[in-house]
Design a protein around this nucleic acid. Sequence first.
DNA 1: TACATACCTGACTAAAATGGTCAAGTATAG
DNA 2: CTATACTTGACCATTTTAGTCAGGTATGTA
Lengths: 141, 141
Amino acid sequence: MKLTSRGRYAVMALVDLARFDNVNPVSLRDISLRQGISLDYLEQIFSKLKKDQIVKSTRGTQGGYVLSKKPNEIKLTNIFQAVDEKVKTVQCKKDSKKGCNGKATKCITHNLWDELESHINSFFEKKSLEDLLKSNKENRL
Amino acid sequence: MKLTSRGRYAVMALVDLARFDNVNPVSLRDISLRQGISLDYLEQIFSKLKKDQIVKSTRGTQGGYVLSKKPNEIKLTNIFQAVDEKVKTVQCKKDSKKGCNGKATKCITHNLWDELESHINSFFEKKSLEDLLKSNKENRL
DNA sequence: TACATACCTGACTAAAATGGTCAAGTATAG
DNA sequence: CTATACTTGACCATTTTAGTCAGGTATGTA
Ligand code: FES
Ligand code: FES
């Protein structure tokens, strides 16, 4: 079970963005430099974040990205969903009634993995960007 | 974030084993047939489980595997550790003081991922094989 | 208007991880 | 002696990941 870089970077970049997003949009180049993330990769990530309306963009000189919601309205769930960082613990298809082994009933451990998935998701639903900003400030004292 | 088949199979196989392990050892062939897992793959998995002393083996005809501890002493943590299904949320090396970006300090989201890792692991530490057997019985009523 | 900045898009790819298979054993009950 | 079942290690196809690269397009500023 590991977190992918895409998901990690998405959150990292958004925290960075939120910290510097006062009036002016923040350019990806700045985020790239501050966080040490490839610019090209960031562009891929932000196009996804934009499609899910987590950020807004303005083009041209002095352009960049801005959050399109308040930090407390952006949960980790939303971010991960936008960049396709999905939690997947079961093997079988969710909607189907068949088990992962192809049999007619769900397998012997299916419920366990379902429980695990909920357990993990609950973490993502609790945490908002605002929480991250706060705890980040505390660490700097 | 997804669970690998190796981890999923390991747990599945052990639950199966625990259910049929009364007096006689259970052969991998039986588990393979009942759970629809490739026999060759199961062998790989069980060699790891054996190395961590979660199961014991007897060779020859009528041979097979037996749990080497009581079901309530075997936590998911132990199983996952045995088969290298490790939870990894941070990018940086745990022991090093450097951040994932190569900088001298831990990155802006490091603590978050650490928290996530603990959150997930706490689930694995709570669940024992016995719990799984119980909830499996309940489902059969 | 020219130009630099910065978003935008899609194709491409090297490397790693995953989920196995295959082959050739060895030990033991019956 | 022979069938069963554990043991070991090499091998491999596919998928995923983590990017790079090459071209755009929009826009503020000089
Ligand atoms: S994981 Fe859903 S049936 Fe096995
Ligand atoms: S994840 Fe540990 S420093 Fe970034």
